[in-house]
């Protein structure tokens, strides 16, 4: 649905040039919610703004809805942009227009006639739950309501894709949740493909099907969350289940077991202790619902070296669990 190939972008020139995107490849499948995470300055904003060419990359190709955008003329690009909705961190609503007027802007651009504009605006405002606020000006709305208007405006012209540029970063946790639920709903009901960027892992955890980690302009990892969490050494998975720094204990081995899907409800630790006669202690554990499935990570401490615990680790792995040795104490 969205495909970025070898996209690079830098700002400035000469030795002071900043590379915002460095040969980025990104594949977003039809109908999924894809989250790009990264710290500020990683190039997230440049990445999402290049998808609808608000920022034109220096090189690479961008394909959305089966159209390669970088080769289009201005007029052709405008037509394609109508099929790509976008919402923003600071909402970007016109203060000179009412809520309904803001939504209608998207339809005026497409040349829809007055009656049709009105009908569609009211329909979409109903979808985002703002019918009662149609005649109100944006300054009288809360942040969450403003973002709902933003979403309504982005969806008014029936796009196939929604881009979200830190859409919940200016909102409180509760409002964030309600906006994410709305994004989830429109993704399911309208079959909309969503690409979002965020610095909050919680957003990825709550709504995303797939994710990518962006670091210094490069995609470090990407894939469906379900496969990321069962990938050894995945940094995204580690961030999804934060267990904090690994403690150092002399004479013991620290392992982390990632549970997902069916393995989450098996008495793994009890078996480990019984079958191998090990005094296992639990150092930390996190359980989350990811993509509708329970998944989690448990950090265990086993006495002795990794070699000594080898049998136990092999046993766990043979059960289809992801086991990583994260700390090995030397006597």
């Amino acid at each position: 649905m969205i495909s970025l190939q070898n996209v690079s972008k830098s700002f400035g020139s000469g030795p002071s040039a900043v590379i915002a995107l460095d040969r980025v490849d990104l594949e977003v499948a039809d109908g999924e919610i894809f989250g790009v995470v990264g710290q500020s300055g990683a190039g997230k904003s440049t990445l999402i703004r290049s998808v609808n060419l608000l920022e034109r990359p220096d090189s690479g190709t961008i394909t959305v809805n089966e159209r390669e955008l970088t080769s289009l003329s201005d007029a052709e690009l405008r037509v394609e942009r109508r099929r790509i909705g976008m919402i923003f961190q600071h909402f970007n609503l016109l203060s000179s227009r009412t809520v309904r007027g803001n939504v209608e802007l998207a339809l005026e651009v497409t040349g829809a006639e007055r009656r049709e504009r009105r009908r569609r605006a009211d329909e979409i405002l109903d979808l985002v739950g703002l019918t009662a606020k149609a005649g109100v000006y944006p300054t009288q709305l809360s942040g969450g309501q403003k973002q709902r208007v933003g979403i309504a405006r982005a969806l008014a012209a029936n796009p196939r894709v929604l881009l979200s540029d830190e859409a919940t970063s200016a909102l409180d946790p509760e409002t964030t949740r309600s906006i994410l639920e709305l994004v989830r709903t429109i993704n399911r009901e309208l079959g909309l493909t969503v690409l979002l960027i965020t610095h909050e892992m919680d957003v990825v955890k709550t709504v995303c099907d797939s994710a990518a980690l962006l670091e210094a302009g490069r995609i470090v990892e990407q894939g469906p969350l379900v496969s990321l969490i069962s990938t050894a050494g995945s940094r995204l998975a580690r961030d999804l289940f934060p267990l904090g720094p690994v403690p150092r204990h002399a004479g013991s081995t620290v392992i982390e077991i990632t549970f997902s899907g069916g393995s989450a409800d098996r008495p793994v630790i009890a078996q480990l202790s019984r079958n191998h006669g090990l005094d296992v202690s639990i150092l930390g554990a996190v359980i989350e619902t990811i993509g509708g499935n329970q998944a989690g990570r448990t950090r265990l401490q086993i006495p002795g070296s990794a070699a000594g615990a080898r049998a136990a680790i092999d046993d766990l792995r043979s059960q289809g669990l992801l086991v990583e040795v994260v700390g090995e104490g030397n006597r």
Binding site: L54, E80, G85, R153, A154
Partner: peptide, 13 residues
């Protein structure tokens, strides 16, 4: 706010 121009551009204005 330049964001308003961007929003309009994103709509294909």
């Amino acid at each position: 706010d330049p964001g308003l121009t961007e929003a309009a551009q994103s709509l294909g204005a």
